[in-house]
Write a protein that binds this DNA or RNA. Structure first.
Lengths: 354, 354
DNA sequence: TTGAAAGCGTTACCAT
DNA sequence: ATGGTAACGCTTTCAA
């Protein structure tokens, strides 16, 4: 028995009021008598009535749904983001329509479907949605927020960590630790995160008249990072320190270095990651990593998308959330600069350079 | 400029047809002349028209949305599930409305909100939604599917791995490996997965006149599992093999065993996990683990929920997806029973017992 | 094959 | 404060 849902009219009939009154009883700021509301609520309870969000959205023209594009869920950073995002949006009365663009393929068709739900906003935490489309949405008047990425030419708001400063700081950290044969393991080269981290890293070196780092590409993928690590570590001029574009790849490199090359970390090889995800804290890796503070980033994203929804005419904003270089055991520790911060050890340049 | 979305009427006007014709042009099986469709499509393209899913859902009374409850996203198993689920549902034309019940708190209010979207189905991949509510949904006629869990008294369909057989097999595996001082690290005790795995494990031991395993509770949580490991490993009668309720906890135990107790795995301690998630394959852990085959489980879930939607009167079903005990290096390997399966080594009892 | 018209379950605007 | 009524944008009869 497909047991039809009760409607506002059903409730109205039972409560002996108009259907409009029922609507008011469920609208926070509406003007309705205490007693009327009570009667409606009783009737609603009896019938198991809940306002139909679909019908409501049709008239209000606000869905209270945010479309969220996520991929790379195998990278520990993103699941944690999803969970926090879901909670944060819920707290503001929004729901989260998830879509996961296929890695290689074009994400735009999927996005079109999400758009057909007239989502109030869009958070793109995945590189594979074309920037063109992102700005197209903006043109169509729907707020778009890039999470943990930015887009080049197009003018779309974003929330990111300090990719550039992080890269610079890590260069300085490794050099202060006495390393001179540095390497960078890029993620997806087209991604802004990878580009910015590399730009910061290589930039600092160049500015200090040091040779540019060796370079391989790991595509933010575990297996690809393993392969890149093999190429890097098999070189005659093997690097003695590698800055990996994220923790996920850093772990891959650590595994290859130890188990295939018999290297000891950090004695033979220093490793620095980015994100400071949970596995970085596991003793086996004890990864020194530039933290992208999850909760602040998510909070910023939620606040920003809500603002954009309330004021669609607002100018685009690029929020950069402050992070720290969290020092653990995977990289040689410079003699100076370590500071204890809460329960973590972080590194700051002895002479203020950052 | 909030640039109003084009509606079917707008398209109709431009194409010189009725609004109904526009609807037909976007309805797969509808009867419409080739030429009419072409004109509609042209007009639609020109106006950037896409049917409004909200309005459509209101009339069809099918949302093509599946509500998915997820939590424990820090356990690597679930993100992978989410991603596969999202793809699988998309392939069938469904969208995924994600909600993440707060761990401790009551998930039911959140679920109510999801229900107000008149979701076509509900997949619960989280223990915190009350079984009572799950069956309430079923009573209300909305298909509910439990993923990686079952519920006790209530009659709700489910997709799970072979928790019971897995537990039994692991007991046999460890005993065949010469272990006698066994322990079980439970997850969330109220969860069916933890209960079934334990029941299989302890049951096999009892049936073979072996003493029951030691027991601690790790709540499927990394830190809690670390604490449990400390209690277990500090005992005078320290176990020489631990079956951990999932990989995530097994890794926690491995970390504590190695880095706090100086134990070597598997020489001093054998460890077996459950799920066979990506980190289990990392050389540092090389975890022997009973595989819950992700893709088959997700495929089964998608197929089952779709069936339930198409035929709500169908009886509840409990699908159990076949898994294998994947042998790696974290547990002593019995002299017999290892079989190569694809690129993995799996264990099967020499005399067929499973 | 096509168009007109009646819903779908709300909210929002009017009067009252 | 309340009830009537017109949208909201679509699908689905029903006639033509």
């Amino acid at each position: 028995m497909p047991h039809r849902h009760a409607t506002a009219s059903d409730v109205a009939r039972l409560a002996g009021v108009s259907q409009s009154a029922v609507s008011r009883a469920f609208t926070p700021g509406a003007s309705i008598a205490r007693e009327t509301r009570a009667r409606v609520e009783d009737a609603a309870r009896e019938l198991g009535y809940r306002p139909n969000a679909i019908a409501r959205s049709l008239t209000t023209r606000r869905s209270r749904i945010i479309g969220v594009a996520a991929a790379y869920l195998q990278n520990h950073f993103y699941p944690e983001v999803m969970e926090a995002l879901s909670r944060g949006l819920h707290a503001r009365g929004y729901h989260l329509l998830l879509f996961t663009p296929d890695a290689g393929r074009d994400a735009d068709p999927q996005l079109q479907e999400v758009l057909s739900w007239r989502v109030d906003g869009l958070i793109l935490a995945s590189t594979t949605v074309s920037s063109a489309l992102a700005s197209e949405c903006r043109a169509a008047g729907i707020p778009v927020l890039l999470f943990n990425r930015t887009s080049l030419g197009t003018d779309v708001s974003s929330v990111t960590g300090e990719n550039l400063r992080g890269g610079r700081l890590i260069a300085e950290f490794l050099v202060a630790g006495g390393h001179r044969r540095l390497a960078f393991l890029a993620g997806i080269e087209a991604s802004s995160t990878s580009r910015d981290r590399e730009r910061g890293f290589a930039g600092w070196l160049v500015e200090h008249d040091l040779p540019p780092p060796l370079r391989e590409v790991g595509l933010y993928d575990f297996d690809a990072a393993c392969a890149a690590a093999r190429r890097l570590l098999a070189r005659p001029d093997r690097p003695d320190a590698i800055f990996c574009g994220n923790d996920h790849m850093a772990i891959a490199v650590a595994e290859v270095a130890r188990h295939e090359f018999g290297l000891r970390i950090p004695r033979d090889l220093s490793l620095v990651g980015f994100d400071d995800t949970a596995p970085a804290r596991w003793p086996s890796f004890s990864l020194t990593s530039f933290a992208q503070p999850l909760q602040p980033m998510v909070d910023a994203a939620v606040a920003l998308i809500c603002e954009m929804i309330e004021n669609p005419a607002a100018p685009t904003r690029h929020e950069v959330v402050h992070g720290e270089l969290v020092v653990r055991g995977s990289a040689r520790i410079p003699p100076e600069g370590c500071v204890s911060l809460g329960d973590r050890l972080v590194w700051r340049p002895p002479r203020d350079e950052a």
